[in-house]
Design a protein around this nucleic acid. Structure first.
Length: 271
DNA sequence: CCGCCGCCCTGCTTGC
DNA sequence: TGCAAGCAGGGCGGCG
């Protein structure tokens, strides 16, 4: 499940490998993986473009093209973006290949086929519905407090809402709430000022630590070079049902469901 | 604007 | 042991 730290790691890998390269052509093997504006063929449209930059926005990989257009990729749960030499062994479920001049290719694979690669016209407000970047200067404690004010939504559900904060997924929502000692089901508006301060800091901290570990590989995630991350070794709660809490050691990690998503937490030290 | 629900899809887990 | 049903989950469209 690529979330912000995984996508950031992928983007950094892509940046050093495909910026400056010219796109010769693309092969779309599974049509629904490639979305383009009406009456535009994705593969034909990107042929001849040059890659001028690679950015991250929330959980999206944004490849900037010389025409000013963007290739915006959503990896969802099992999507992978890997750069390889032409002819090198190919992983399973490779549904789209972008062939680059010089013999490299960008491979987009996805076992569950939920991922999408979208061609976006220049000046398009494609990310208008995405919220604040949690690692940017805009993510102040005051801005965060403003999102929570008056909301009865469980705090964990709010953390997953990409319209407010962009990039947090299930793993890091669980981990940040544990670090801040806040129960995931707590109504957002019920957080005290000290709790908001702790959670704001925990979000930034856990995301930065995960980036330093090149992401969490609990299942499918690998970076642009096909390498796994290591933050799965540092997880305090996610996927650790029935195991002792790493902080209080007497509490056992519980699993419940919030907003249709598995949620892991310590009943003893998260309130 | 807001929140909720169902759908998309396939591999793994569960239970008989 | 074998098989089918159930489950998982990010984003999006539809609905109230």
């Amino acid at each position: 499940m690529p979330e912000l730290p995984e996508v950031e790691t992928i983007v950094r890998g892509l940046r050093s490998r495909i910026v400056g390269a010219t796109i010769e052509r693309a092969t779309v093997r599974l049509a629904r993986m490639a979305v383009a504006p009406p009456r535009t063929q994705f593969a034909a449209a990107i042929g001849g473009e040059r890659v001028v930059g690679v950015q991250r926005r929330g959980k999206y990989v944004v490849i900037q093209l010389s025409s000013g257009r963007l290739i915006v990729t959503s990896l969802r749960m099992t999507g992978r973006l890997i750069v390889a030499r032409r002819g090198a062994p190919e992983g399973p479920a490779t549904h789209l290949v972008v062939h680059l001049a010089g013999g490299a290719e960008l491979r987009f694979s996805d076992v569950r086929t939920f991922g999408r690669m979208r061609l976006v016209e220049r000046e398009s407000p494609w990310d208008a519905s995405l919220g604040i970047e949690p690692l940017s200067a805009d993510f102040t404690e005051q801005a965060f407090a403003g999102m929570l004010a008056g909301r009865t939504t469980p705090i964990k559900v709010l953390l997953l809402d990409q319209r407010r904060i962009a990039g947090i997924g299930n793993i890091y929502a669980c981990e940040a709430l544990w670090e801040a000692r806040i129960r995931p089901s707590r109504a957002a508006r019920a957080l005290t000022k000290p709790a908001i301060t702790r959670l704001h800091g925990a979000i930034v901290d856990v995301l930065q630590r995960a980036i330093a570990c090149r992401g969490t590989s609990v299942d499918d995630y690998v970076d642009a070079e096909g390498q796994r991350g290591s933050f799965q070794n540092d997880l305090a709660v996610y996927g650790r049902a029935a195991q002792p809490c790493r902080r209080c050691s007497t509490g056992r990690i519980e699993r419940s469901v919030l907003g249709q998503r598995g949620t892991w937490w310590c009943r003893r030290c998260q309130r």
